[in-house]
Simulated assay, not measured.
Amino acid sequence: MAAEQRLRSVNFWSGVVVLCLTIAGALVGIYQLNEVLTDEQQVPLAELSVQGELHYTASEEVRQALTAEPLGSFFTADVDDLRRRVEQLPWVQKVSIRKVWPDKLSVYVTEHKPVAMWNGDRLINQHQEVFRADITRADSSLPQLFGPENAVKETWEEFNRVQQMLEVNGFQIRALRLTERFAVNVVLAQGIEIKLGREATLERIKRFIDVFPSIVEHEKSKNNEIDTVDLRYDTGAAVAWREAKSES
């Protein structure tokens, strides 16, 4: 009986030792595997692919933004952090990043598409979002919009509404200003300023189109140039002139 109990005890403790060794071995294995997976030298992100229609941002700028700080390994690289690095570039609107086994980082960049200048020092993109970038790199023919900072959408919509009616009649807007009281002033490509006020802007534009031929005839007869056409009246228009530039 005593011998049987001793055998059971030996078997129990032998099992405990084996279990402990197994657990220790598994922990060591997990630790070693973790060391491998988190080691940039063992599983590095060796390939970097940059895609997208890039007009203002060079692929090398994207690479530099990503590698300004360590990327991490394939398993530890934080995709959200890497995305934020690229989105800090001035012309970048949105970034999509994914890992491709075994060592590739695929980056797709969507740029801002400027549609107008905003308040002289910034730009508006295709989603009516204001962004700051080097405006000298944008198309110089972009319209210049001025308005309250909280009325970007309203200013852009007013520009499109007025421009749509003017361009049918051969006019192009160079600049539009929306005041704090939402009054509208427009400067045409030929330098003529049109004051439309707050109300009935489309009706006033139609009036401008109707009276413009007569104004031009007067311009020719007086050898002056049209400076301002003020349409903030129930009928008619007030025209201010500037002296025509002499040709040398």
Rank of each mutant, 00 (worst) to 15 (best):
M1Q: 06
A2K: 13
R8Y: 09
S9M: 09
S9L: 14
V10D: 01
N11W: 14
G15K: 15
L21E: 01
T22G: 15
I23S: 12
A24H: 00
A26Y: 05
L27R: 09
I30P: 01
Y31V: 03
Y31N: 03
L33K: 08
N34K: 07
D39W: 03
E40N: 11
E40M: 02
Q42P: 03
P44S: 03
P44E: 04
E47L: 00
L48M: 13
S49F: 12
S49V: 15
V50D: 05
V50C: 02
V50M: 09
G52S: 06
E53L: 14
L54T: 10
H55P: 04
A58W: 10
E60D: 11
E60P: 00
E61I: 03
E61N: 09
V62M: 03
L66N: 08
T67S: 10
A68L: 13
S73H: 04
D80K: 02
D81N: 11
D81E: 13
R83F: 01
R84H: 11
R85I: 04
V86S: 06
E87I: 06
P90S: 06
V92T: 05
Q93H: 13
Q93A: 12
V95I: 05
I97G: 01
I97P: 01
R98Y: 13
K99W: 04
V100Q: 15
W101M: 10
P102E: 02
K104E: 02
K104F: 05
Y108A: 13
V109T: 01
E111R: 09
N119S: 10
N119F: 10
D121Y: 08
I124H: 09
Q126I: 00
Q128C: 05
F131M: 08
F131S: 02
R132S: 15
R132A: 14
D134C: 11
D134V: 11
D134Q: 12
D139W: 00
D139F: 02
S140F: 07
S140K: 09
L142D: 10
L142N: 00
L145P: 12
F146E: 02
P148F: 02
V152A: 05
R161H: 00
Q163V: 08
M165N: 12
L166K: 10
V168F: 06
F171I: 07
Q172A: 13
I173S: 00
R174K: 15
R177L: 00
E180T: 08
A183P: 05
V184N: 09
V184I: 12
N185S: 09
V186R: 08
V187I: 08
A189G: 07
A189R: 14
I192D: 04
E193T: 11
K195H: 03
L196I: 04
L196A: 07
R198Q: 04
A200G: 01
T201Q: 01
L202Q: 15
L202Y: 05
E203P: 02
K206T: 11
V211T: 09
V211G: 02
V211N: 06
F212R: 07
H218L: 15
E219S: 15
E219K: 13
K220R: 15
K220Q: 15
S221V: 14
E225A: 11
I226N: 07
V229H: 09
L231P: 03
Y233T: 08
D234R: 12
T235N: 14
A237I: 01
A237D: 10
A240R: 12
A240E: 04
W241E: 00
R242I: 03
E243M: 10
E243N: 02
S246V: 14
